[in-house]
Design a protein around this nucleic acid. Structure first.
Lengths: 336, 336
DNA sequence: ACATATGACGTAAGCGCTTACATGGTCTGG
DNA sequence: CCAGACCATGTAAGCGCTTACGTCATATGT
């Protein structure tokens, strides 16, 4: 009946139903012993007043946010978007809201992360979005942190996609083709994943008895940056036969550079990526597929367990990846 | 000195600094008149105890969450991811945390949205993720809502990307090529944008004096769905010369279907998309570019204003889009 | 019929902050 | 030398819930 502008509180419901607020709370939260007739009266009052319990009041009383956060560099590429989606799906199932925080190109990521820490019961941190010290500070507050695609810090659970096996598969495949001169495109210092990929790539090359590659051709993660770096490399007198790129965006840029220089792929130069984003398929890019959703989903589950108080041993796992061979690394009988 | 497990409260800081909690609050929130010496003492205590004010306590007292939400169908395609990113960036600048909610394929989206409404000061709802009645319920609670890529509801601010002008441009371009038999791929009932695109497409065709297309070839938004629907259409005896697709994913599927049927694009069949996702570029797809980030950013600003209490007139705006001509719609002199 | 167990509900103490108002001390001017 | 003004700070009342504990009436057993 009453149509106030402000949302109703539990007190108004209690008054309307002629009971105490404790009873309202009990009636609403199912549990406890409430007479059926009373519960009905309460529910009617709730409906009439359009009452919805304030999350703040609840959280404060319960001592938990029922929310957790995820920190990522960016959402532009399909990679993080998929991870976030996998994460959000599981978190939602588990009854937690999800707060997001993107750090790339933003001022004061550390401060933002500390801020986030005050609003959540736990959080997932992807890649090297913030310094180790920040992670430490967050866990010190008592907020569980799960690390994703990032080297371990302290005693946080850490989840990664495999870079080593796939690098070996990739190099093995390329070596079968008979290539000799390899180059690596991407900045190992820019992301833990790229770093791991570069190291694994070198190791695999060594294991295959190939010459060590030059220093990596450093560039950012975007297409344009990859294009420029690749163009530089491909103009050199002794240009590499193969350009292994740290991620797909970079590789797509390299494909463009090759085209501009009238080099055909894979005849004149072979190019491979990493991640298997959607565009990779249309560009015919040989790459490594990551279980992106699975990464997010697993992180969400681990986090939930820590929040629930699971004090088990620290988890460090690596999810398997898959080499996807397309046309950019040489001619095959495959289609697609 | 003291190293407790639980995070410190304002009481402990007050005790340690020898002042009342009111003074601590004042010292921390800058404003009020606090003697410099006192402030210093407080800050020292804060540092020693590693105090961080509880967001819950603050929010409850302030009566605001300092957070807002964004509801979208999915994060798989680049489209929503970009919108969300644009949104998050501005929201962060404005000091709000961002809660996300993805609805596609999830149980009880309406309930989830109502839940979200209890945790935020306002929210953005993209596309037809929930029914109009749910939007109405949310606004009734007093939570401002900004609608994105969705028909207006009640007196919510509503932001859209243009579909009409771009449809005219697109059809105009295709008509110049001399094509006659047009088909539309996508489900107008599936999304407000696709609906608007279909209608505008038909209108443009009529305006150009072309035959009306058949009923749309209904399919979902993903590549696979587009492939199947396109395959069906392209096998018909009088197959369309042009397949205008409601979004890029669908169009990419159509490209695949054409390939499988050994039809070459654009010679045998012309295919166009909508959105200009990254893969579109590599697939040579003619499409319509949307200002995705700008959509998100603008929505965030509008929302903030409403939350701040701006009671101005309802806003309804349409952002301009741009026709991107590539190879899939015919041969041009262009590159890329 | 009486002590006791049981069920249904109310009371009140938090949860951790912000802020209106009250208090007391120090200055200022006449 | 004192009233009034002004600072710096304390007091306490919320904000909207949950929940341990207390209370009262009715049902149970002998």
């Amino acid at each position: 009946m009453s149509n106030n502008r402000q949302p109703a509180t539990i007190y108004q419901v209690a008054a309307q139903a002629g009971v105490s607020i404790a009873t309202v709370s009990r009636a609403l939260n199912g549990s406890d012993t409430v007479a059926e007739s009373t519960r009905k009266r309460v529910l009617i009052a709730v409906k009439e007043l359009k009452f919805r319990p304030s999350r703040l009041g609840q959280s404060l009383a319960e001592g938990r946010h029922a929310a957790n956060g995820i920190v990522f560099p960016d959402l532009s590429g399909p990679y993080y978007a998929e991870v976030v989606l996998g994460y959000e799906e599981v978190a939602a199932e588990l009854g937690s809201s999800v707060l997001i925080l993107s750090t790339h190109g933003r001022p004061d990521p550390a401060g933002k992360v500390m801020d986030l820490a005050r609003r959540v019961d736990g959080m997932v941190v992807i890649s090297r979005t913030v310094a180790d010290t920040v992670i430490a500070q967050v866990t010190e507050i008592g907020i569980p942190v799960v690390l994703l695609a990032r080297p371990a810090v302290g005693s946080c659970d850490t989840l990664n996609a495999d870079n080593v096996d796939s690098a070996h598969d990739l190099v093995g495949h390329l070596v079968e083709h008979g290539y000799e001169r390899f180059g690596f495109l991407g900045d190992p210092a820019g992301s833990p994943d790229v770093h791991a990929r570069y190291e694994a790539f070198r190791a695999a090359l060594r294991a295959a008895g190939r010459r060590s590659p030059r220093a990596p051709l450093r560039c950012d993660f975007d297409v344009e940056s990859g294009r420029r770096a690749a163009a530089r490399a491909l103009r050199r007198p002794a240009r590499p036969e193969v350009l292994v790129c740290g991620n797909d965006e970079t590789a797509l840029g390299a494909l463009e550079a090759a085209k501009e220089l009238d080099l055909s792929v894979p005849e004149d130069v072979v190019i491979t990526g990493w991640d298997d984003v959607m565009a990779a398929r249309y560009a015919g890019l040989t790459t490594v597929r990551q279980p992106m959703r699975e990464l997010g989903a697993t992180a969400a589950r681990w986090l939930q367990e820590r929040i629930a108080g699971n004090a088990g041993p620290v988890r460090r796992e690596t999810l398997a990846t898959q080499l996807i061979v397309r046309s950019s690394c040489g001619v095959h009988d495959h289609k697609t």
